[in-house]
Amino acid sequence: SLSVDNKKFWATVESSEHSFEVPIYAETLDEALELAEWQYVPAGFEVTRVRPCVAP
């Protein structure tokens, strides 16, 4: 099958004044980091952490 098993990760994104967490959907932690950097670094943010979303 061609289905992709995307998992939810939380990326911590920082600017000079703010820090916030955004959801990233990817297959692996490395891919989540790449996606977060691709989305947020060009906008002037720094991705400081990516972690798996742990269900309660």
Rank of each mutant, 00 (worst) to 15 (best):
Thr28Ser: 12
Val22Asn: 03
Phe20Asp: 01
Leu29Ile: 10
Pro56Ser: 11
Leu29Met: 09
Glu37Tyr: 14
Ser19His: 07
Cys53Glu: 11
Val13Glu: 00
Leu2Pro: 11
Ala26His: 03
Pro42Asp: 06
Pro52Leu: 13
Glu31Gly: 05
Gly44Trp: 03
Pro23Tyr: 11
Thr48Glu: 02
Leu29Ala: 08
Pro52Trp: 12
Trp10Ala: 03
Pro56Lys: 07
Pro42Thr: 08
Ala55Val: 11
Glu21Lys: 05
Ala26Leu: 00
Phe45Asp: 01
Val22Lys: 01
Gly44Asn: 03
Val22Glu: 00
Tyr25Ile: 06
Pro52Arg: 08
Lys7Trp: 12
Thr48Trp: 03
Thr12Ile: 05
Leu29Gly: 03
Glu21Tyr: 06
Trp10Met: 08
Val54Gln: 09
Glu21Ser: 06
Asp5Arg: 15
Glu17Asn: 11
Leu2Glu: 08
Pro56Thr: 10
Ala11Arg: 01
Glu46Lys: 15
Phe20Met: 07
Lys7His: 09
Val41Gly: 15
Val22Ile: 07
Ser15Met: 07
Ala43His: 11
Glu34Ala: 15
Leu33Cys: 06
Leu33Ala: 05
Glu34Gln: 13
Trp10Thr: 03
Thr28Val: 02
Lys7Phe: 11
Val41Trp: 09
Glu14Ile: 13
Cys53Lys: 02
Thr12Met: 08
Val13Asp: 00
Lys8Asp: 01
Pro56Cys: 08
Val47Phe: 02
Phe20Trp: 08
Val4Glu: 08
Val50Gly: 02
Thr28Ile: 02
Glu21Cys: 07
Ser16Ile: 08
Lys7Val: 08
Thr12Leu: 13
Glu27Pro: 13
Leu33Phe: 13
Val4Trp: 08
Glu27Met: 14
His18Thr: 11
Ser1Phe: 10
Leu35His: 05
Leu29Gln: 06
Ala11Gly: 02
Arg49Met: 14
Val13Asn: 01
Ser19Thr: 10
Ala32Glu: 01
Ser1Asn: 10
Trp38Ile: 13
Phe20Ile: 04
Ile24Met: 03
Val22Met: 04
Val54Asn: 11
Val13Ser: 01
Ser16Val: 07
Pro56Phe: 12
Thr48Arg: 05
Phe9Asp: 00
Ala11Phe: 06
Glu46His: 11
Leu33Val: 09
Asp30Val: 09
Pro56Ile: 09
Val54Met: 12
Glu27Cys: 07
Val4Arg: 13
Phe9Asn: 00
Gln39Tyr: 15
Asp30Ile: 10
Phe20Ser: 02
Phe20Leu: 04
Gly44Asp: 03
Ala43Gly: 06
Pro56Arg: 07
Leu35Pro: 00
Ala11Trp: 03
Phe9Lys: 01
Phe9Thr: 00
Phe20Pro: 00
Val22Arg: 02
Gln39Arg: 10
Tyr40His: 04
Glu34Pro: 01
Ala36Cys: 06
Lys7Pro: 09
Val54Ile: 13
Tyr25Gly: 02
Ala36Trp: 03
Thr48Ala: 04
Pro42Trp: 12
Lys8Met: 15
Arg49Cys: 06
Arg49Trp: 08
Gly44Pro: 00
Leu35Thr: 06
Ala55Gln: 09
Val41Pro: 05
Arg49Phe: 12
Val13Thr: 01
Arg49Tyr: 10
Ser16Thr: 08
Gly44Ser: 01
Pro42Ile: 08
Glu27Asn: 13
Val13Met: 04
Ala32Ser: 01
Gln39Gly: 05
Glu31Pro: 00
Ala32Asn: 00
Ser19Leu: 06
Leu33Lys: 13
